[in-house]
Design a protein around this nucleic acid. Sequence first.
DNA 1: GCCAACGTTGGC
DNA 2: GCCAACGTTGGC
Length: 176
Amino acid sequence: MYRNQRTVIESAASLLCRKANEDMNYWLMKTEPAVFGIADLKARRDQTEHWDGVRNYEARNLMRDRMRPGDQAFLYHSSCAEPGIAGIVSISRAAYPDFTAWDPTSDHYDARSTPERPLWYMVDVRFEREFPRVISLKELKSEPRLQGMRVLRRGNRLSITEVVPEEWHLILGLLD
DNA sequence: GCCAACGTTGGC
DNA sequence: GCCAACGTTGGC
């Protein structure tokens, strides 16, 4: 009961915050569903998880300098049978040091990063919505008004990219 | 600072 | 499994 009430209150607060925030940004975040997909996030306690393992400076800078709580992001499934956008997550915590970089047993260990001088950062994301179907990469590529999207560029490898509001709403419209 | 070699990403 | 494209590393 307490959990439900808190969730409702937080959702309302998040909405209010979003409406008041002119600088809200939209994002696209890539993940391999075999490792951690939208279904995994949905199943997490509080449907929230930290987004660890980003080891690219440009993506780190976007998280650290531009992402704000209340921002929304498409969750993109890559390296799978049907690459595409599987749903929406929200940013629930601003960037903080990625502690997996300090763990020698982690796949993402990086000896250059320390608690005193963190090199890598992560945010927390919360499940918002799973689409009734994946909006495939093929479908995104076939839409002329989306050709500017960085994720569609040939050879793109950046795991976090910005989505402009026009693209965001157009993509949501593809579901109808 | 240049740039070749390397490891990784990710669609196909 | 293939391979193009990319970011990073390290020799010079």
